[in-house]
Amino acid sequence: MSSPLRTESRAGCTVDAGGRITFGLRLTSAARPQLLLRLRPKKGQPEEVTHLLDVEAGDDGRLIAVLPAGLTLCEGRWDAYVLREPDGRRERLRPGIRDLRALVDGSSRDRSSPIAVRVPYVTKDGYLAVRSWLRTMHAEVERIQAADQSVTVTARLHGRSLGQGATVRLRLRGTSTARTLEPEVEGDRRSFSFTLDSSELVDVGGDNGVWDVFVLPEENAPSARIGRLLDDVADRKGIFVYPSITLGATDVRPYYTVDNDLSLEVTRQN
């Protein structure tokens, strides 16, 4: 039988529609506490980026720390710690109640550039962290339909409008191989859709590989990744699972990556 988690410092949090996060801390014997957010470094790399937030007494007497909407977080995962006094020892924070209701319909309003998204979540080992995305522009998936041999994706571009020569590009990961599609663009020049015949991926890239999906808002413009970021789900990969399309001995399946970006996986059946 696994042992229960030790009682440790905790922080709940509330996110408003503008992206501000208010942390409510439950602490004992803390003289001048601070909340520390640390950008989790890649494996084998040193820590490089942190943010310190002051902890103050709120109107109801609780201890609170505020991450303002205007404070930019680099894209990545930010682990939360408490320092009971300045320059004190770091202590990981366990999560309290997370009120993310303001994020649920985040895709319903247009975002200007840069697109900054922050979603508090609980790590696999039970600690509080914040998942952050920061992009010049982003195409938010609204619907994915997989039927017969085709995949149809409906999305909306944030941070820029679609101009003449807009295209959707699928790129076979690790190669220069690409497939280009012309999307159907709505009159507002933001919403668009495209339909892909899955057999084309197999014909072009073989029966094993991953295709990443981008939109180019106009000819020769920088591309934007297509994915789903604008709600309260920090890790979508294992939650939103789509059926595979079977083509003979090969399966084609749309899925979300660990960064919540859209890709298509081509796999040969065993």
Rank of each mutant, 00 (worst) to 15 (best):
E8W: 08
V141W: 01
D148K: 04
P41N: 09
L196D: 00
R225C: 08
G205N: 09
R26L: 02
L216Q: 06
E219G: 08
G165F: 04
D231P: 02
T154S: 10
R40I: 14
S29M: 11
T177Q: 15
L201H: 01
F192S: 05
V55A: 05
L247I: 01
A102V: 02
G187V: 14
D207V: 01
W211V: 11
P120R: 11
G76K: 09
S263N: 06
T267F: 01
R156E: 15
L37I: 07
L35V: 01
P183N: 11
V141R: 06
E142S: 13
K124E: 10
W133E: 07
Y256L: 02
V153W: 00
S9D: 08
H51G: 05
D60R: 11
I97F: 15
R38Y: 05
T167G: 03
R94Q: 13
T152K: 02
A146M: 03
G159Y: 03
L170W: 07
F192D: 00
S199Q: 14
L181V: 05
P217R: 04
P86F: 04
L67S: 04
A178G: 11
D60P: 05
R143Q: 09
R190F: 02
A30G: 11
T123M: 01
R111N: 02
V202I: 09
R228H: 10
L172R: 15
R171P: 01
W133L: 15
C74N: 15
Q45S: 11
S199L: 06
V49C: 05
R94H: 12
L134C: 09
K43I: 12
D232M: 03
R228P: 03
A80T: 00
W133N: 09
D110M: 13
W133R: 12
S263D: 04
G58T: 07
A31Y: 02
S3Q: 11
E142Y: 10
A17Q: 11
Q45G: 06
S108H: 14
G24R: 14
G70N: 13
E47K: 07
S198E: 05
S161Q: 12
I144P: 00
V117K: 10
P86A: 08
L83T: 01
I21C: 05
R84N: 15
E140P: 08
V210G: 00
S9L: 09
G126M: 10
V15Q: 01
G206Y: 13
L172Q: 14
E219V: 14
R160I: 11
G12Y: 05
N270R: 05
T152M: 05
E91L: 12
